[in-house]
Design a protein around this nucleic acid. Structure first.
Lengths: 190, 190
DNA sequence: ATCGGAATGTAGCGACTGCTACAAGAGCCT
DNA sequence: AGGCTCTTGTAGCAGTCGCTACATTCCGAT
């Protein structure tokens, strides 16, 4: 067999969590091999050895981050659905206010920027995360909602717009926009 | 007087448009002095001379970009308001589909990312652009709208969410979300 | 005519970039 | 035991980074 030796503790799998922790704090754009390696307790030499080159490292890292994002969402799936769209919106807002999600958002906008610019790996990771977010939202929609899928899409679009406005200092605009939306009214349609 | 000499054609004012054109194409994050200087027909030496250091150059550049964004919006103010919120949404969507706006969006997400990370100058520029966008939208809202300001905020939040989803490959999600929103219905409130 | 200051070119500094050449250790198979 | 491959350390390369020292040119003020 090719992996019969248990000697090495240094694999992609053991490296990625440490690398992810580093980019979560310091960002993706300015990340360079030596600080990355230091955060993982190795040398740039070994990062290249295990990932081939920096681009593949970033791509793997983005995939890994998308994976833990998905896992975090899945772990946070409540047992019962929301009763109304309002409550559904409240839940997702509460989720986005958690500290871990706050620090993640800083990284998220870098991923969006990389995706818009076409950097390799960024769009796939971003798309995967948004898909996951969307299906998570669908599970939270009220059971009697006339259009749960459409409602989830609507809710997510509004939410992401709010998050973006919040990131650029227009949190108030976003908050008032949400209050002016149909989410502030008791029933989705009547 | 201090600026009586017409000798030099090399000032911040003449430099900024050329620098802006460069970052519009190549991005802000990876921008370094020498390519920037080449695009402006000078040397890195002169950029430092005129702006002091790179950080101040970026801050000035962001301010300049916010300025031209505002000017572009102002130039595009239609004489008459929209008749309905739907039409208002259609206008802003049409605007966002223009080629110049498309290339600007790539830069925009970098600005959002920098703003979220707290890089100097980013948040101010982003906030200014969003404020301008909001007031532009208010001028486009129907004259008989019950809540033009609130409607503009709502519309912008939804639109920005759509643009973000579009940037990460969820354009379909965004499109369908817009169609499921109240903007797809004839009257804002009835 | 001379001085002074603003503007510009040339060269280079030290730090950092991604990456590689080379050698050596470590455990495997025969 | 002898090789073999996988893994790792040490050094270093060529290139780029932001920035600066130094010298020069040029123009207006005196």
């Amino acid at each position: 067999m090719s992996q019969s030796s248990p000697k090495s503790q240094l694999t992609k799998e053991t490296l990625l969590p440490l690398l992810a922790a580093h980019v979560m704090e310091h960002g993706l754009g300015g990340a360079s091999l030596r600080p990355l390696a230091k955060a993982a307790g190795t040398s740039d030499r070994m990062l290249i050895y295990h990932f081939g080159n920096k681009e593949r490292l970033i791509v793997d890292l983005l995939g890994y981050i998308a994976g833990i994002y998905a896992a975090a969402l899945e772990a946070g799936i409540g047992a019962e659905r929301a009763a109304t769209r309002q409550e559904c919106a409240a839940r997702i807002l509460a989720q986005s206010r958690e500290p871990m999600m706050q620090t993640f958002m800083v990284l998220w906008w870098e991923i969006v920027a990389g995706s818009a610019r076409g950097l390799p790996g960024y769009k796939d990771a971003a798309e995967e995360m948004m898909t996951k977010q969307l299906t998570w939202l669908e599970t939270q929609m009220p059971a009697d909602d006339p259009d749960p899928k459409g409602g989830a899409r609507y809710l997510m679009t509004l939410l992401e717009g709010s998050l973006m406005l919040g990131a650029v200092g227009h949190a108030r605009t976003a908050r008032e926009a949400l209050m002016a939306s149909e989410l502030a009214r008791p029933s989705p349609r009547d």
